[in-house]
Design a protein around this nucleic acid. Structure first.
Length: 104
DNA sequence: CGTATGGCTCCTC
DNA sequence: CGAGGAGCCATAC
């Protein structure tokens, strides 16, 4: 297992992943603070408006948690979707909600 | 190459 | 408006 120390490590790790993944992560990183985007949003941004599920795959494999705010990416329903983690995502969502209210 | 999996989205009832 | 079923896409084995 490799521990991510900085964005540079992320970029290096990206080299071991398909181009599609990198596009997904890049699009996800483009999401501004306090804002949320749907998988479809990312899918369209990378040029695959129908690959929302594939996008989810990339985010799931995403070893760059704080670099690629997968928690900032939600479903069209406005919900997280499922997240396979223990619940740490909830904390992230909480902070996200706070940011949203702050920037009002 | 074919099958299985997944943090989805859309359409129809 | 709410619930359910089918479809689409890419990765990993």
């Amino acid at each position: 297992m490799k521990k991510i120390k900085s964005v540079k490590d992320v970029l290096k790790a990206m080299q071991s992943y398909p181009a599609f993944f990198r596009k997904v992560w890049k699009a996800t990183m483009q999401i501004p603070p306090g804002e949320t985007r749907s998988y479809k949003w990312v899918a369209e941004n990378i040029g695959h408006p129908r690959a929302a599920r594939a996008v989810a795959m990339a985010l799931k494999k995403n070893p760059f948690a704080p670099i690629v705010p997968c928690h900032r990416v939600i479903r069209s329903d406005g919900k997280i979707g499922g997240y396979s983690g223990f619940g740490g995502i909830k904390k992230k969502i909480y902070l996200l909600e706070k940011e949203k209210e702050q920037k009002t």
